[in-house]
Design a protein around this nucleic acid. Structure first.
Ligand code: SF4
Ligand code: SF4
Lengths: 138, 138
DNA sequence: TCATTCGCAGACTTATCGTATCTATAATAT
DNA sequence: ATATTATAGATACGATAAGTCTGCGAATGA
């Protein structure tokens, strides 16, 4: 049970967008090269980020992606949920009359995690990184 | 990104073991019937619980499974980790020199969740359930 | 205007993992 | 001994993740 690799890519891409050029659009070509992943595949994740309202896309020549909100508003939770969805870790297919106590317990615990992930902003990491998020090799 | 259905089965099985017969062994046949899942499949999860030290198995006629520890010592986290493993939600394949800040953030958040799951005991739910954990239908 | 550059969307293939079954084996009570 | 029960391995199936290919539409600039 792990976050998908797509989340990994998305986090690194956001990290780059925040650290490098908050205003100027960055092409998927450059991002894909930095992360060592194909353009078409990475674009799927970036599109998800767009639909989640985290970034903004501009078509045409010299286009690319740039941040939509203030960079301090973008949390880890935002990125993770944009990719992984916002379904609970525990969801039973069988619905019965009384409320499910098991789901309740897991949901409560998950809420703790989400709270922490929401408080952590992408920009928080940038400060600790010398120049820019390193290129991924794998 | 969801817990596997096996975790669902394991939780319900543990719930039954705690609620019904903490001492007398319960056969996988009975448990499987209650949960609506095949014996051979459920046995795999129960074996994992055995290896995790949560329950004890006794072979032979009138055998089955019974709790190993005190029932108040068995937390949700114990069961979940027995099935899902204890790997972090976020693990990058690429290891570089400096520590990974992303993994750090997610691990911290996950720790919050684990703390809650550890404080919640299986026995806590039994008190709220009228007679016994209901049979699963699906 | 026209061609180039770019993001977007859908169909598609492949790999991986969860789910589930079957069978054989070992251990224990009667 | 025989029936009963857990355990382990091999195997098959299905769902989802991972990745590719292709065409379309929007914007730029020459
Ligand atoms: S108690 Fe919760 S997990 Fe169990 S069958 Fe009911 S809804 Fe599903
Ligand atoms: S920063 Fe972390 S997630 Fe990114 S490549 Fe390095 S180890 Fe992997």
């Amino acid at each position: 049970m792990k976050y998908s690799q797509a989340t990994d890519y998305a986090l690194h891409a956001m990290l780059y967008l925040v650290a490098e050029a908050p205003d100027k659009p960055v092409s998927v070509q450059l991002l894909a090269e930095k992360l060592g992943v194909s353009q078409t595949y990475l674009s799927k994740m970036l599109t998800k980020l767009v639909k989640a309202g985290l970034i903004h896309s501009v078509s045409g020549a010299n286009g690319g992606y740039k941040l939509k909100r203030n960079q301090d508003d973008i949390s880890f939770l935002d990125v993770i949920q944009a990719i992984e969805g916002n379904t609970s870790l525990f969801e039973c297919s069988f619905h019965h009359d009384s409320a499910c106590l098991i789901q309740q317990v897991v949901a409560d615990a998950e809420q703790q995690m989400m709270h922490t992930l929401k408080s952590k902003k992408i920009a928080d990491l940038v400060a600790h990184i010398p120049k820019q998020p390193h290129d991924r090799l794998t």
